[in-house]
């Protein structure tokens, strides 16, 4: 069940930021609207603007969720639900809000719902869905066996507590400030920094231990 979302307390940010890894030509286009402006347009009824936001962010969001859940199919479903909720709760988007922080806040809620459902009633993946995945690489565990460095890191990530994995991924991959991360995680900026630092140290310990085990 999708719960109703309250207004999300996130720190105000400058209107133009977080253009990510988009091509420079697109970034520097003079008529380019910021994420915030686009989301305000969506809120005011210009629903097509969400298509632009989807194109800008769905890849990065999917990557974050895939690393967070370790499950590509679940990551796709959650990404879909996040954009669905953006439409549903567009009226709650604030004038002084940050679109990225809002999006990751929604993503966090959706991921929590996903974990709750998964724990309550595990469901088998539909084999038909697997054919749609662009990356047909083997599971991270198989690659760990092949001493693949990325696979070792995936395994280390998977062994972190979910909260530690979450803060680390937000801090290292999503180009969010700690002020924004603290808003998403609903904690203080100092607590967010401490948690990110601790998570990185734990990941390092796990990662080098796995490397050592693989070398032996």
């Amino acid at each position: 069940m999708i719960a109703a979302l309250p207004e999300i307390p996130v720190a105000p940010v400058p209107a133009v930021r977080n253009v990510g890894s988009r091509p420079a030509a697109v970034v520097n286009a003079p008529a380019q609207r910021s994420d915030h402006a686009l989301m305000l347009a969506v809120r005011d009824g210009e629903l097509d603007a969400l298509g632009e936001l989807f194109e800008r962010h769905h890849g990065r969001l999917f990557g974050y969720l895939a690393k967070l859940t370790g499950d590509r199919s679940a990551a796709e479903d959650i990404t879909q639900i996040v954009f669905q909720r953006m439409l549903k709760y567009r009226h709650t988007y604030r004038d002084d809000g940050s679109f990225t922080a809002w999006m990751y806040h929604l993503a966090r809620r959706c991921a929590t719902d996903h974990y709750r459902k998964a724990n309550a009633a595990p469901q088998a993946t539909d084999p038909a869905d697997l054919h749609d995945h662009a990356d047909e690489a083997p599971h991270a565990g198989h690659r760990a066996a092949a001493r693949d460095d990325h696979a070792l890191l995936h395994t280390a990530l998977a062994r972190l507590d979910r909260d530690d994995r979450e803060v680390l991924l937000l801090a290292r991959f999503q180009e969010l400030s700690f002020a924004e991360i603290s808003g998403i995680l609903e904690c203080s900026v100092g607590a967010a920094k401490v948690r990110a630092h601790r998570a990185l140290r734990q990941l390092r310990d796990l990662y080098f231990r796995l490397q050592q085990e693989a070398a032996d």
């Binding site: 989807f54 769905h58 890849g59 990065r60 999917f62 990557g63 895939a66 690393k67 590509r72 990551a75 796709e76 990404t79 879909q80 954009f83 869905d129 749609d132 995945h133 662009a134 990356d135 460095d149 990325h150 890191l153 995936h154 680390l168 290292r172 991959f173 990185l200 990941l203 390092r204 990662y207 080098f208």
Partner: peptide
Amino acid sequence: TADALGALPDPAPSPRLRRNF
């Protein structure tokens, strides 16, 4: 560790995601 983390490839979603959206 941070470099390895940054070098992790971002998986691409399937075309189904865009279609559904």
